[in-house]
Structure formats: C-alpha cells, structure tokens
Design a protein around this nucleic acid. Structure first.
Lengths: 342, 342
DNA sequence: ATGAAAGCGCTAACAG
DNA sequence: CTGTTAGCGCTTTCAT
C-alpha cells in the first residue's frame, strides 16, 4: 500500500483521488457532492480512493468555486457573560447536527466593528450569518438583505421588521416576575433595567410597568434605575436604591448578571437575602442555580433559541426566497430561594 | 443564468478596484499586501479607489492563492464551563489585536471528532491552530508537525514534548492549595481529581501528594476520589466522602466547577461551609467570586494563557522554523471564604 | 515600479 | 454517465 496520505507535505486533492482511480476529477467532484447520476461502481471506486488517500475537502476552494462553504458566521458581543454561552451552545449543537462549521466573531461591544465584520463575513466565507443582540443592526441589515444574504437575529428584533428573528417573551417574562413579587405582597418593587438600546431591555421594562399597573401599584421613577445588563453597574444602582429614604422590599434585575450585582450590594450593606430584600432575575443562566441563595428568576430557553435560529438560517440557505419570520419562545418563572413573601 | 443564486449583487473585487484607478490588478494586490516598492502616488490612488468602492478582501481566494487566510482555528471541548470561556476571551483579545479571525471547533469531548477537525482545519482554511485540552493529541500532532503546520497546545502538555505549549503551574498550585489547608490545621484532606487523562489532572494530584508528604501526613486512598472536572461527578464523589466513618475536614477539588459540586453536596448533607468542612478549588473562574461562600481557590491566569498562546502561534506562523517551546505561567492562592482553620 | 500570466482546488456548465 | 473546460478572486513569479 502507498503511504502517501501520511507522508506527503501537500494535502490530498481531488486530482490525486482522480488519478488514483483513473477517472476525471470532475467525476470525483460529483461523487463527493452526492450527484446522483454516477455509476455505482465508479462511486465506490472514488470513495475508496478518497478514503485510502485520506482526502479532506478544501473548503475555500469549494466555496470560491461557487459551492457552499458549510460555515456559518456567528457575531456575538462577547463570551463573558454566561448568557451568550448558552445560546452559543445551542447554536453549536444544531450546527454540528447539520454538519456546518462555526466562524466566531466577537465585537466586544464595539459598534464600529459590527459593520466591518458583517461585511467581511458576508463576503464569501460563510453561507449565512447569526447575529446575537447586535447593537446597530439596521445599519447593515439592509445591505445583507439587498445581497439576499441569509441571516437571523437572535434576541433582538429588527425595528423595520424585515429580518428573521428568534427571541423570547421578554414582556411576558418581566410581567410574570413582577406579578410574582406583587403576589408575595411586595409593593415597593425596584427595577434595574438592561441596556435600553436593546429591544429586550425595553420590553422587560414595559412588562414591569404593566404588571404594576394591573395591580394598582403606582410606578415610581425613583425605583427604576437604568442599568446595562452588567453586574458592576447593578452594584452601584442597588446602592442608590438602598440609600432611598424608604427602601424597596424587592428588586427585580433585568438579567441574572445584574441580579448578582444586586445580591452583592445588598450583602455589602449588611442586609440579608431574602430576609430583608427579595431579588429576582431574568435569563436563568447556569450560574443562577449555584449562587447562594439560589436565584429566583425568569427562565429563558437560551440554548433552544440558538438551535431554532440555526434551523431558520439553514432553511433560508436552502431556500433563499423564504420570507422572514419571527419565532418567539416562551419564558417561565423559576422559583428558587431569593424571594420571600413580605 | 449568470448568477449563482446566492447573492444578487456581486462583491467588489480587486479587478474592480484596478479598473477604477487604471492599474493592473496585480498592482492592487501589491498595495493591499503592503508590498514596499510601489510608487506612493499609485498606492494612494489604489487605496482611495478601494475605499470608495468599499472593497473587502475575499479571504478564501487569498488563501487559496497561497496567501494567509488571517484565520486561526481554535479547538475546544465545549463552551459550557467558564474555564474555557476565560481562555477563549484571552485568545480572542489577542487575535483581534493581530487582526486575525477565529474559527471555532467544539468537540463536545468526542474523541473521534478531534482528529477529523484537526485534519479539516489544517487543510487550508486556517493559518494555525490552537488546541485547548485535547484528549487524544498525540494521534494527530505528528501529522501536524510533519506538515509543518503551526499549532499550540493550551493547558495540556505533549508527552512527546515536541509541541509548543502554554500551561500553568498545576503541580505547584495543587501543592499550595494543600499546604494552605495543612497550615490551617487540617489533616484529613480529601482530594477529588480531574479527568486523569489530562496532564493537568495528573500534575494536580501529584502536587497534593507532595504537600502531604512534606508535612508528614499520610496519603490515604479513601480520601482521594477520581472525578472528571465536572460538577455533577463531584457531588457524588463528595457524598462518598461524607459517608466515610471519619469525615474529611477539608476537601480540595481539582477545579472550581468540582468545588461547586462539593459545596452543593455538603449543603445537601445539612453541613456548613466552612464551619463543618473547608472547600478549596482550582482555576478561579469568574463565578467563584459570586458563589456563596466565595470560593478560596488557586488562581490560574486563564485569559493570559490564551493571549500567550496566540502570541506563540503567531510567531510560529511568521517564522515556521522556530523550535517548539513551553511557557508555564504562575498560579497563586486566592483566599476567600470557603476555608477556615480547624 | 508595474503588467502579464500561471495557477491554488474546486464547482458547474457544456459536450459528448 | 463521464470527460473537458472555464472560471471563482487572489498571490506570485517572471518579464518589462
């Protein structure tokens, strides 16, 4: 047997495979692409040769030549918050199932980079694009659509409503969280918002307001502090809340990370959770069941959102003319140990 | 039909740019690649035209033609454990600085996939490869080296010692953790190991043993339970430890995730941390400062390991003949609230 | 200093 | 059913 698969410096190409079994290299290409009208015996011979030589497709060449790269691009703000990690996990799982690879772009919440990336990514290497909470979406979404480039937004809707998006019931989730607190007897319920440029943050604030209104509890400006979904910001925000003449008895943080900040701040002030103040979050990232006390929160099916997004994207890649659609997954309350009846 | 169906508007190519400013497209290529012998005025004209047209390089074509793809591949077991996330953060930061993109491969700890990936990744798309705690490294490392393909191992050394690797002082860290416990007066110190196929797990166990020996505390088989770096496994392991006729007074978990499992299990048993049992971890992932009680642990400079790995990889890409080298970063003890003197 | 031309590995017509 | 032939967009000799 020839050992040239292992010892040659150059990777094996379809030409090597073709030579090995005496057919033209376009036939090899056909076999490799599952083209149906190839004689069975030929297909077999090609497959054997390919395996024997250890052939591995060169994706760049394939996609340059007009085929699919089997790569999808994923644009995320960063990997440092558990929340994204869960979505990526779902994306990754589903992609694997469909035999796609993942190109990861991290913007580090740098607005300028988003558009640069989107253009680069859409410039051939990837077959489609997944965007997680993009900040300045509208700027380049039009360009993408013009080029009929498949993409799906995750957890952020398109104001123009022309994009495919998968998100969760942010309004309802926030409503449920607030109602739960209300039903526990709380009346002074503070709310630390998310980054208000994101639709999810806006929806959650609205849900909070609506629940209050439905229970005839007045909305108080002093109890609502603008945050940005980060723990450190929530710490400061909570300090302000705790120094109010009349302290809130419960604090609803727009996401779990912020809730950790709230807990930290409450503890710093020498108060207990939930004895003195109840805390509720939003997202239900994995860490929320290991913090102490375990965080009561609104569960958002993050991984599933990732999976669904991939499915939608793949559909779009298969059938470019599919109209955009929006899938909203349900959230639900997870009661743990950080809240108590007043 | 002339279109390939995927994109309705064709991206700008160097040919367009060349036409725009009346030079040959090879000149455009030179300018774009920073070739020095180009008349300044020509360079200027080309740059202007490129900007005006919104030219974006097609990486596949570039790399197919023999240039660099400016993409490096990153092989990780999974994104679901904080630990990897930190390393990736460092990798990502440094890559951005060097203007490289990231191709992410997740093996989900599936051994078979590792080698498939490594071959695919090394087959042209990427300029180099970063491998985080690969399981079956040796199998394909040889192939990589034969092809002179740049790669760096993170947090796992190559038994054959022919690979560039960046890791941390696992032995010393474990020694320090154990010594700390010893100095707190503990004598019955249990140890839950990591996945013993990984060098870091082996080194940590050795460090634990050495510290014990140096303090004349006998090594007891019953106090050492094999784990796998996962929380759930540590829960079970701890249950066994707690049911011992004579309970340990302290438990050292081979990583923070396991330490959370230990804490969970101790709490399930109605015991207190650190009142009844002290717990110490290893890694110092971000969550360890938000769990309650805050975890005393060995800090491992994960993000920095990622950054250093990228630097080493880039050096290798620049200069393929650079000999492999190993960089070991220092760990250190971080005292928080989960341990107390006996 | 710049142009011309030869591929990189592969897909997709177009012919048999 | 299979071989032939263009490119895909770009880097790189080799000329000029």
């Amino acid at each position: 047997m020839t050992e040239n698969g292992n010892h040659s410096t150059k990777p094996v190409t379809i030409i090597d495979v073709a030579r090995e079994c005496g057919v033209s290299y376009s036939t090899v290409s056909r076999v490799l692409n599952g083209y149906e009208f190839v004689k069975e015996s030929t297909r077999q011979r090609v497959m054997d040769a390919a395996n024997k030589l250890g052939y591995v497709a060169n994706l760049q060449a394939r996609s340059l030549a007009g085929g699919r790269s089997q790569i999808i691009g994923l644009l995320v703000p960063g990997l440092d918050n558990g929340y994204i990690g869960e979505i990526v996990r779902g994306v990754d799982e589903e992609l694997k199932r469909a035999n796609y690879d993942l190109m990861l772009y991290t913007t580090h919440r740098h607005r300028g980079k988003e558009s640069v990336y989107v253009n680069t990514i859409a410039n051939g290497l990837t077959d489609g694009l997944l965007l997680i909470v993009p900040l300045v979406a509208s700027a380049y979404l039009d360009a993408l659509r013009q080029r009929n480039f498949p993409y799906v937004l995750i957890d952020q809707w398109d104001a123009a409503d022309k994009s495919s998006v998968v998100d969760a019931t942010n309004w309802q989730g926030a409503y449920d969280a607030t109602r739960y607190l209300l039903e526990c007897g709380h009346r002074r319920i503070a709310f630390i918002t998310g980054l208000m440029e994101l639709s999810s943050a806006v929806d959650r604030l609205e849900g909070y307001k609506a629940a209050l209104a439905d229970h005839d509890v007045p909305y108080l400006d002093e109890l609502v502090i603008e945050g940005d979904f980060w723990q450190a910001t929530a710490v400061t925000a909570t300090e302000r809340l705790l120094s109010l003449p009349e302290r809130p008895t419960a604090i609803f943080a727009a996401n779990d990370l912020s809730a950790y900040g709230v807990m930290e701040s409450i503890r710093n002030a020498g108060l207990g959770i939930p004895e003195d103040i109840s805390v509720i979050g939003f997202d239900d990232i994995p860490q929320s069941s290991i913090v102490y006390p375990k965080l009561t929160t609104i569960h958002q099916p993050l991984a599933q959102m990732g999976r669904v997004a991939v499915k939608m994207l793949l559909e779009q890649i298969e059938n470019p003319d599919r109209p955009a659609r929006r899938v909203t997954l349900a959230t639900h309350l997870v009661v743990r140990d950080s809240c108590r009846p007043i």
